[in-house]
Design a protein around this nucleic acid. Structure first.
Length: 400
DNA sequence: AGACCTTTGAAGAGC
DNA sequence: GCTCTTCAAAGGTCT
């Protein structure tokens, strides 16, 4: 049966794992430049298990308790590998989620290791994703993971372990910064992995199209579109760019819905919102000033995230621009043209080395990474509880 | 229960 | 060719 499903010990001769690692074991400690501490020791369980979710165990083909499920799935004609003689390793879109595999209290840990298809990945007969409009089964084939997704899978556990943050949104921000901090060579490793994922995915599902999965999140999209800061605000931004903000309509400058774009939308939300002039002038000065502060903060983050500038006035919202680039770490693109509007100097000041910034207890607002206490804004590293013990300045924490 | 948040990259659609 | 949109993972939080 193993041969039948293409999971023989030899498989294609070389496991994806060994391909990815050029023969090196993947569960090595990460490069020192990542600044990751060695695996902490769990007093109860001893050494932590390897934090890489897709180490050898995931890319070699252990047959365990879920084997029957795998066999059933793989022997489904429509899901069989396209070429009988081809025995491709499983791409990430088909292997077990570490969530299921790494459950600390799993009743059969030894059998639920990585590399096995789980119900979530495969979809159960009751999974609504498997049913098309006619009630017929339609397997949901997930997209192959891209380089960053592979990196996230690998590094998430480490970041979570060394950080008090637990929310994925916050963790992902850290991971995003760490990703940018990787060397080209390090990133190339993940790009290569992603490329192989796509190749294998393509071999297994020749007819699959990314478009097939579209619509899954349509609900979300519709809800987002209704929000005030929807994509429409990008219209003037897209049209004129950040360099010509004087050309933007007033609502756009204030992160409101673009009235110029709304002119083209017949009778939708724009029609009931009153005239353009009214929209441009019917708010109080206080509101405008308040908005401008938020805009300034947001725009600086977007226009020059690399600047060595510290936000001294924080908007009430945690992140200035959900769709903007990473605002706290330099990005390669932003390094090329660091600009900061001169009129922002009253709001922003350069951070001298070792400047003390107000400390807020770790975990107060875990999602707020503009909050310097959650993350070292220059390194992307978490500020841990132990960092948060500046005796000289109990209310401050040093940022280097 | 399910949407949201947040990240980057791939891929498709539309212009 | 460019821009925009969607979806991959994750899990705590919110509705």
């Amino acid at each position: 049966t193993a041969d039948k499903i293409g999971l023989g010990a030899g498989g294609a001769g070389t496991s994806l794992f060994s391909l990815y690692n050029n023969g090196q074991h993947f569960a090595q400690p990460p490069p020192a430049h990542m600044g990751i501490t060695p695996y902490p020791i769990d007093p109860k369980a001893g050494l932590r298990p390897p934090v890489y979710p897709f180490t050898a165990s995931q890319y070699s083909y252990h047959l365990g308790a879920d084997f029957t499920q795998m066999a059933t799935w793989f022997t489904t004609p429509s899901l069989m590998p396209p070429h009988p003689g081809l025995t491709p390793p499983l791409p990430h879109s088909l292997v077990a989620s570490p969530k299921a595999a790494d459950l600390p209290h799993s009743s059969h840990d030894n059998h639920r290791h990585h590399g096995m298809l789980d119900a979530k990945t495969l979809g159960s007969p009751h999974d609504k994703n498997l049913l098309d409009g006619k009630g017929e089964k339609k397997p949901h084939i997930k997209k192959p993971l891209n380089a960053f997704m592979l990196y996230m899978k690998e590094m998430r556990a480490q970041v979570v372990a060394e950080c008090t943050l637990k929310e994925s949104a916050a963790i992902n921000q850290i991971l995003g910064r760490k990703w940018h901090a990787l060397s080209k060579e390090e990133q190339a490793k993940y790009y290569d992995m992603a490329r192989r994922e796509r190749q294998i995915h393509m071999q297994m599902y020749p007819g699959w199209n990314a478009r097939d999965n579209y619509g899954m999140m349509k609900k979300k999209k519709r809800k987002k579109e209704k929000s005030v800061d929807g994509a429409n605000m990008k219209k003037c931004r897209a049209r004129y760019g950040l360099d010509q903000q004087n050309q933007w309509c007033k609502p756009c400058r204030r992160k409101k819905k673009c009235i110029r774009y709304m002119e083209g939308e017949e009778g939708e939300e724009g029609g009931s919102s009153g005239s353009i002039e009214a929209q441009e002038s019917d708010e109080s000065d206080d509101e405008i000033q308040d908005d401008n502060i938020h805009d300034v903060i947001s725009d600086v983050n977007m226009a020059s995230p690399s600047n060595n500038f510290q936000m001294l006035l924080s908007p009430s919202t945690s992140l200035a621009s959900p769709s903007g680039p990473p605002s706290l770490m330099p990005s390669p693109a932003s390094l090329a043209s660091p600009t900061t509007p001169g009129d922002l100097k009253e709001v922003f000041a350069p951070i001298p080395p070792q400047q003390l910034v107000p400390r807020i207890p770790v975990g107060t607002n875990p999602r707020d990474l503009n909050n310097p206490l959650s993350v070292n804004q220059l390194t992307g590293q978490c500020i841990t509880a132990s960092d948060n013990q500046n005796q000289e300045h109990p209310a401050m924490v040093s940022v280097t």
